[in-house]
Design a protein around this nucleic acid. Structure first.
Lengths: 218, 218
DNA sequence: TGTAATGTTTACCAGTCGGTCAAATTATCC
DNA sequence: GGATAATTTGACCGACTGGTAAACATTACA
């Protein structure tokens, strides 16, 4: 017999590590496109190149796979916000945050879509994470931004909505990639679009759109 | 016999109109939450309060229902962009566009999520609409914005990315509603959040975030 | 009021879904 | 090399999926 499924064994086998890695990689592929309900274990098994029962040997249920995937990805996903530094220069911190978020949208679009799918569908599996760790982190950084505004280092604005706007504008390029490509057309939908986006967003967040005749030349 | 399904009859019955309306309403409820793959005809039938075969009497397939829903909603959805007026004042046109998009996110969140789900999952059913009508409309309005910038009425920026940023920031409040609520917490997640968002976005798009000592007092 | 067209329901189908089981295979370690 | 534990597989299950067939009920209209 056997069935000391991953959880029960104290030490994880080489095979266990490899296969779990393989499965989560495939799961990311599938879940990020079709969401939890729209994805099937068979699809994931096929992408992972193993049989369904074999996959279920490592993760007892579809939910467990999804859970493990979310847990693994969430930490990385919040890294850019965590790196947001209270001691730094406000403008360059915000600029840096936008840049890092945009890089993640470019380099990890599947991770972005995984969360987008989940949140869009009502976040039935990650509500706790949103209300707990995420909220706490945002609260902390919002306080920093508010302090900057109070000290006159930055314009007075709602820090929460500022963070939302950075999330939405940057993640848009991962989550709505097909739309962005469709609208930009053949010519501009290459990788250069991320540099264009970075340039635009920097301009937007720093100076806005209106022409200001009195602005000192830089 | 019978089965002159909706399509075949030249004139639509009162019952047909009512029932199709009822079905599409239910379909919007379901598709906007679970996406196409994740939704089932049974769910829609239950929400619509009718039996599955009855529902399939009006729409032959799940795809047909989705198609009809998309077609009906797309026109409305693009209305704010269509209303964007080349002859108007640039700043107030952009401001107005943001406001109208935000109102739509508030008043028609299901419609927003329907498209978000679809695009997020690779837009398998609306690719033609994106590359056709949508792209044309955006191209047209982008040209207007570019002309404004050239005339010095607005700061020089990439008009496409400007439009993307307006889409993303406003639709965020519909698509990621649960996340917004979770982060804002009990206190601020009431309807007032839309007014806060409007205030912030107006500020962002007009003036950006940096403090400008030379700006003339208004 | 009768009847033909329209609308609704029950019963059903084949394929897919998440998941189980026991047997077979492979790795590990003495 | 052999015992033991870990891994993999094929066959299978009941529930659900999108969709159909035909009987039944209702409506519209002459």
């Amino acid at each position: 017999m056997a069935i000391p499924r991953a959880a029960k064994t104290q030490r994880r086998t080489r095979i266990q590590e490899e296969k779990e890695e393989q499965i989560l990689e495939a799961a990311l592929d599938v879940f990020s496109v079709s969401g939890f309900r729209g994805s099937t274990i068979d699809q994931i098994a096929e992408v992972a190149g193993m049989s369904k029962p074999n996959l279920l040997y490592y993760f007892r249920t579809k939910e467990a796979m999804h859970r493990a995937l979310i847990d693994r990805v969430l930490f990385t996903w919040l890294e850019p916000l965590r790196a947001f530094n209270a001691q730094g220069n406000p403008e360059s911190e915000i600029r840096g945050y936008i840049r890092r978020k945009l890089e993640m949208a470019r380099d990890f679009p599947r991770e972005s879509r995984l969360f987008a799918n989940e949140v869009l569908q009502g976040a039935p599996h990650i509500e706790d994470e949103l209300k707990g760790p995420l909220k706490e982190l945002v609260d902390e950084k919002a306080a920093v931004i508010r302090a900057w505004a109070k000290a006159g280092k930055i314009v007075k604005c709602d820090p929460y909505h500022l963070i939302f706007s950075i999330w939405s504008t940057t993640q848009h390029y991962a989550d709505f990639d097909v739309q962005v490509r469709a609208v930009l057309g053949q010519g501009q939908s290459g990788e250069g679009r991320f540099e264009d986006a970075a340039r635009f967003l920097e301009q937007l967040f720093v100076d806005g759109l209106s022409v200001r005749p009195n602005q000192p030349a830089s």
